[in-house]
């Protein structure tokens, strides 16, 4: 079941009380962290007028839609409709939730009923998420030390030293996003520059 989990971002890029756009295999998600730190991934659509909830705002343990301010609580149920402050919203107004876990500094999403855990990534620290306009084949061609399909791993040269890296692959409409991790203790600035260089080489391979 672990292949159902898709990395959609890094924990460091989603601080408390922030919402962002995420994806699971073509489904648009609103991924958000409450003021207390609780992480959730919902269908990225307010049931009222279809506005993307990833544009919304977090207050306390709730996410509100930017369009009309409808407030959704931790279970995805609508808690408050500002146009009707005295109304208790019917329980039927609800945003569908996806499973969402945080592990090794990575935010993973999967359909709600998913059991099991995402792949463990011990000994690695989160680096950066970057998008590429090429496919995974081009990435492997650019860096033959990397192997794998959804999880690219290998020992690469960064700043003259061998460094273990792991690139979690997320497929999008216009290319790839790679959520990169590198060995704990590695120089992240050097690793980030390696990643930029990898992207340039992979996109050149992809375009060829």
């Amino acid at each position: 079941m672990t292949q159902r989990w898709t990395a959609t971002g890094l924990s460091q890029d989603l601080p408390k009380a922030v919402a962002m756009a995420g994806h699971w295999q073509g489904h648009d998600l609103a991924v958000w962290r409450s003021a207390s730190g609780r992480l959730q991934a919902w269908n990225d659509r307010c049931p009222h007028r279809g506005m993307r909830l990833s544009h919304g705002f977090v207050r306390g343990e709730t996410l509100a839609c930017i369009y009309h301010g409808w407030v959704y609580g931790a279970d995805g149920g609508c808690k408050h409709i500002p146009a009707h402050p005295a109304l208790t919203p019917p329980a039927t107004i609800r945003v569908a939730a996806f499973a969402c876990v945080e592990q090794d500094g990575v935010i993973w999403v999967a359909p709600a009923e998913t059991v099991g855990a995402p792949v463990a990534l011990r000994g690695l620290q989160p680096l950066r998420s970057i998008s590429l306009t090429c496919d995974v084949v081009a990435v492997r061609l650019a860096e033959p030390a990397l192997s794998g399909d959804d999880v690219l791993r290998g020992l690469v040269q960064i700043g003259g030293q061998a460094c273990e890296v792991c690139l979690l692959v997320q497929h999008g409409a216009s290319g790839l996003t790679l959520h990169a991790l590198c060995a704990v203790g590695a120089d992240r600035i050097a690793a980030s520059r390696w990643l930029e260089d990898l992207r340039r080489r992979a996109e050149r391979k992809g375009a060829a």
Binding site: M51, Y67, L87
Partner: peptide, 24 residues
């Protein structure tokens, strides 16, 4: 404008089940 460009679906749903209106 930034609201209008981020509503899903882009077409206006005339099916009453697709979106949930209130008295407002």
């Amino acid at each position: 404008r930034s609201i209008l460009e981020n509503q899903i679906p882009r077409l206006l749903p005339l099916d009453p089940g697709m979106e949930i209106p209130t008295q407002a």
